[in-house]
């Protein structure tokens, strides 16, 4: 769809009582006991298991990929009668230079978990468009099937929506067959209205997912921002019939947090969005906490640090 035909979709809008709602979402929709265990296992299948550090090496990546394949200890899954469900994380997410390592490790482990690569000058996006596009192409060549691109925040802050649309179109083209996940870096967009507009434009330009943050900003995935993005996704679906995915990332560390995110998506978009094709959680340490909670649910004890394998 061309942007100028759809300009009214990005009309002026204000967001009022979102804070009120978000304060209640955790309290209103808690799940306990076996409901909690089942929800946590479901959350595992949404995780993009991520490592984005300067000190990533091939052995780190190998360990990460193994953890992605076996996210929860086999005996715990057996106790829950879930061992035959093939529970893995949704993807692994790495820097472009580590894509080769990840593809190799996953192949060795004999599984088809997709490899996601960040790109386009992650995390700031402050490099030339030419190199940003080249970065996407190289990651795809190395075997990444999902590309997490960052948008150019300066275009949002100066109101150059057409230019933003055109850039994301070019990202889309560079991705080819790979899925395009567009990071809005909402912590740097200034207002909820900007978040809504940027979400709409990212979806119109052909993103498969919209993602909250890089995890490197000072403010990352927050509920008010998420609700605005989820409502943009719903509005887009009502207008076009296309379901676009949602990926919160950054700062989601505890099992309890992940439950709140699941219920938020369930409340705002409904059960049909609760599948890995439409919902991801970007996280690195979250998985360990979920495994600890499952351990406690199964055994009634709290796990020691060495009881569970690291990721």
């Amino acid at each position: 769809p061309r942007l100028h035909n759809r300009r009214t979709w990005v009309s002026e809008c204000v967001f009022l009582s979102i804070l009120d709602l978000t304060e209640q979402i955790q309290a209103r929709r808690s799940v306990k006991k076996e409901w909690q265990a089942a929800w946590l296992l479901k959350a595992v299948t949404f995780i993009d298991l991520t490592t984005l550090s300067g000190d990533d090496t091939s052995s780190n990546i190998q360990r990460l990929c193994y953890k992605a394949k076996y996210p929860i200890r086999e005996d715990l899954l057996k106790a829950l009668n879930m061992h035959d469900k093939g529970i893995t994380t949704a993807a692994v997410c790495v820097y472009p230079a580590r894509v080769c390592d990840a593809v190799k490790a996953l192949k060795a482990a004999g599984c088809n978990i997709p490899v996601a690569s960040v790109a386009t000058g992650f995390p700031a996006g402050q490099t030339h468009l030419k190199t940003r596009l080249e970065e996407i192409r190289l990651a795809v060549e190395d075997g990444a099937t999902e590309i997490d691109v960052v948008i150019n925040r300066s275009l949002v802050l100066t109101g150059q929506w057409e230019a933003l649309y055109d850039e994301i179109r070019q990202f889309r083209k560079a991705c080819g067959e790979a899925h395009l996940k567009t990071i809005l870096a909402t912590g740097e967009l200034g207002s909820l209205t900007n978040v809504y507009k940027a979400s709409m434009i990212a979806m119109m330009a052909g993103s498969d997912f919209i993602k909250t943050s890089t995890g490197k900003e000072t403010v990352n995935a927050t509920f008010p921002v998420a609700i605005v993005m989820l409502r943009a996704i719903r509005d887009f679906f009502w207008k076009t019939g296309n379901k676009i995915g949602f990926k919160p990332a950054g700062g989601i560390r505890s099992a309890k947090d992940s439950l709140a995110w699941l219920s938020l998506v369930k409340e705002e978009l409904g059960d049909e969005w609760l599948k890995p094709e439409l919902f991801r959680i970007g996280a690195s340490t979250l998985l360990s906490d979920i495994e600890r909670q499952i351990y406690h649910h199964v055994t009634g004890r709290y796990a020691a640090y060495h009881d569970l394998p690291m990721s």
């Binding site: 076996e34 409901w35 089942a38 649910h297 055994t299």
Partner: peptide, 23 residues
């Protein structure tokens, strides 16, 4: 390893993703 306490329903809930009671 301690004895298993898990109920039988986790499998169903994993598919349906329904809410449970919080009494």
């Amino acid at each position: 390893m301690a004895a298993t306490r898990a109920g039988p329903r986790a499998r169903e809930i994993f598919t349906s993703l329904e809410y449970g009671p919080v009494p």
